[in-house]
Design a protein around this nucleic acid. Structure first.
Length: 558
RNA sequence: UGGGGCGUCGCCAAGUGGUAAGGCAGCGGAUUUUGAUUCCGCCAUACGGAGGUUCGAAUCCUCCCGCCCCAGCCA
């Protein structure tokens, strides 16, 4: 692409940006501070990309900063592997948290002090109820809860018990620290929420320092406040937690007053964005790993060849709003194709080869034909492709008894071989089973390069590779992981909704020789097929390519 | 039947009292050595429904309908 072709993309507008804009203009805040707060209990997926782009994007657009903060308050589920992958994924997307890397665990001591403050103020108590009792006394959606028998312990006793919880005197589940709010609230989060639970688990960062850990509600808002976060942006399901979020800010001597805003999480047709479920797929080995290219994780999209620029553009096009929605996968495919069409070099690869013998082409002769690397960007140069008597074309480019609108090869028709010659099919050779295994064709030497001096036209141009000089390769085609647009809908089993044909392995593909030099991560268009990149499994002599996305195909659709 | 949200074209999504942006998808057509790309054109008398206020409503009021979230010592 020419350097001067920097696309001018309009800054997105949405209700959150409007709020930030207004807060800055009114002087409520002099700069914006956001945060992306993942829990390191799995890999990031495309839904997180929306949050990352929103939070980091806001900081960039309004000249503030965005913290990367790990919400690591549950050592039972969290691991270093996830911390590492999350950092790699955020960087891959092109965002930089600079010095602003934090962890909820950085604040464990401060949170503990604040918990004691609450106890001293008579606003928190240690509850010895069992988990079952807590559950039973919480009430239901329509009935109020009941107050715990331990609710009115003295401040001294609560302090003593809480300190002993911290000291490790009690086993997991023996007791909890609860806020004393309102067991009759219609908002269940306000029915004396649990603040601390006992967890004798090793924490990825604090090791064995703690055996009591704060819950999300007791950690999140205070962490935002400590960091001076101005706009704490989360998804809709946390809206019910906002009164609690504010209750802590109101009742604790916190250093700043962040405000929470909620937006609708991203959903995409034919896919599931749930860390819990993705974790299950990995654990049960239904996919090859978190980066199996069929997964919606950022690691998988990267491996599949999706450029981060395309992902960001996708998120921009989806927008930010408060209405639950399911975005068409076609929009995602579109953004990927749009970027790749502009940037990917062109090559030829035959996915399902059919041998073609050009009977009037001299035996043993090989010539080099020139091909352009990008039809719209001459600066990307050209390459040579060897042409010989035996070549391969795509099986689907031949039909013995073609329907009306089939422009490709069939007995008697003439087509162009891209960058090469016109060829005419004389005969289809079949095996005992009646399958076409070879085409006998003739070529017109006068059409070298692809144009006929007599001006005659052909209706199709086919891609091809030379038989002897092409490279064998395995090509992996990825289809949606689910066979229905709304997997799991109506309570159906997610596993049962999985697409049995999500992975197609084409082990006999043949690629033009120049593809031996394909660099890892470089995405290339196989003309008339789609965009592909080498997989980490690829080795010289045993090439493996992933299909990032196919080309639009108006013929196949018709 | 408690609390909190949301309902604008097949899918997203602007619009916040002045007479329905845009994108994807779809459909025509032009160009094309990728049935790709590119380019032109078409695509909501209508904003969940019913009333009401107003000169005027998707935008305000009332009632109704539908969908989503909440009863983890998960986040």
């Amino acid at each position: 692409m020419a350097d001067n072709e920097t696309p001018i993309v309009e800054a997105p507008r949405d209700f959150i940006r409007d709020i930030v804009d207004a807060d800055l203009k009114s002087g409520k805040h002099k700069s914006v501070v956001t945060r992306f707060p993942p829990e390191p209990n799995g890999y990031l997926h495309i839904g997180h990309a929306k949050s990352i782009c929103l939070n980091f994007g806001l900081a960039e657009e309004f000249g503030g900063h965005c913290n990367l903060r790990f919400d690591d308050t549950n050592p039972a589920k969290e691991a270093q592997e996830y911390i590492d992958s999350i950092k790699a994924d955020v960087r891959w997307l092109g965002f930089d948290w600079g010095k602003n890397l934090f962890h909820a665990s950085d604040y464990f001591e401060q949170l503990y002090i604040w918990a004691e403050d609450l106890i001293r103020a008579g606003k928190a108590y240690v509850d010895d109820s069992t988990p079952d009792e807590v559950h039973a006394m919480r009430g239901t959606l329509t009935e109020p809860g009941k107050e715990s028998a331990y609710r009115n312990r003295s401040v001294e006793q609560n302090l003593d018990l809480f300190r002993r919880m911290r000291a490790g005197e009690f086993p997991n589940g023996k007791c909890t620290l609860r806020a004393k709010i309102d067991m009759g609230s219609g908002n269940i989060n306000l029915r004396d929420p649990i603040l601390y639970r006992i967890l004798h688990d090793e924490h990825p960062r604090t090791g064995k320092t703690w055996c009591i850990y704060p819950n999300y509600d007791f950690a999140h808002g205070q962490s935002d406040s400590i960091e001076g976060v101005t706009h704490s942006i989360c998804t809709l399901e946390f809206e019910d937690h906002k009164p609690l979020y504010e209750w802590f800010l109101d009742n604790l001597p916190v250093p700043s007053r962040p405000r929470q805003y909620e937006f609708a999480r991203l959903n995409i047709g034919y896919t599931v964005l749930s860390k819990r479920f993705l974790n299950q797929l990995v654990t049960e080995k239904r996919v090859s790993g978190w980066d199996d290219p069929r997964m919606p994780t950022l690691a998988a999209l990267r491996r599949r060849g999706v450029p981060p620029e395309a992902l960001k553009d996708f998120v921009r096009r989806v927008g930010v709003a408060r209405a639950n929605s399911v975005v068409d996968m076609q929009l995602f495919d579109f953004t990927v194709r749009e970027f790749l069409n502009k940037h990917a070099q062109r090559r030829m690869g035959v996915l399902r080869p059919l041998k073609v013998v050009i009977e009037n082409y001299p035996e043993g002769q090989v010539e080099e034909l020139e091909a352009v690397n990008h039809p719209d960007d001459a600066a990307l140069g050209t390459r040579k492709i060897p042409f010989a008597r035996e070549i391969y074309v795509e099986q689907e480019d031949f039909m013995e008894n073609p329907p009306k609108k089939f422009f490709r090869l069939s007995p008697g028709t003439e087509v162009r071989l891209r960058y090469a010659y016109f060829i005419k099919c004389r005969e289809a050779v079949k095996n005992a089973a009646g399958e076409v295994i070879e085409l006998r064709c003739t070529y017109d030497p006068a059409t070298r390069g692809g144009n006929a001096p007599d001006g005659r036209k052909v209706k199709a141009t086919l891609h091809w590779v030379p038989a002897a000089q092409s490279l064998p390769a395995e090509v992996r085609i990825y289809n949606p992981l689910f066979s229905r647009p709304d997997p799991g809908a109506g309570g159906s089993d997610l596993l049962a909704d999985m697409n049995p044909n999500s992975l197609e392995l084409l082990k006999d593909a043949r690629l033009e020789p120049a593809l031996a030099d394909a660099k890892p991560g470089e995405v290339i268009q196989f003309e008339r097929q789609g965009y592909f990149c080498t997989d980490p499994d690829s080795k010289p002599g045993a090439l493996v390519f992933n299909r990032t996305v196919g080309l639009r195909d108006s013929y196949a659709k018709a």
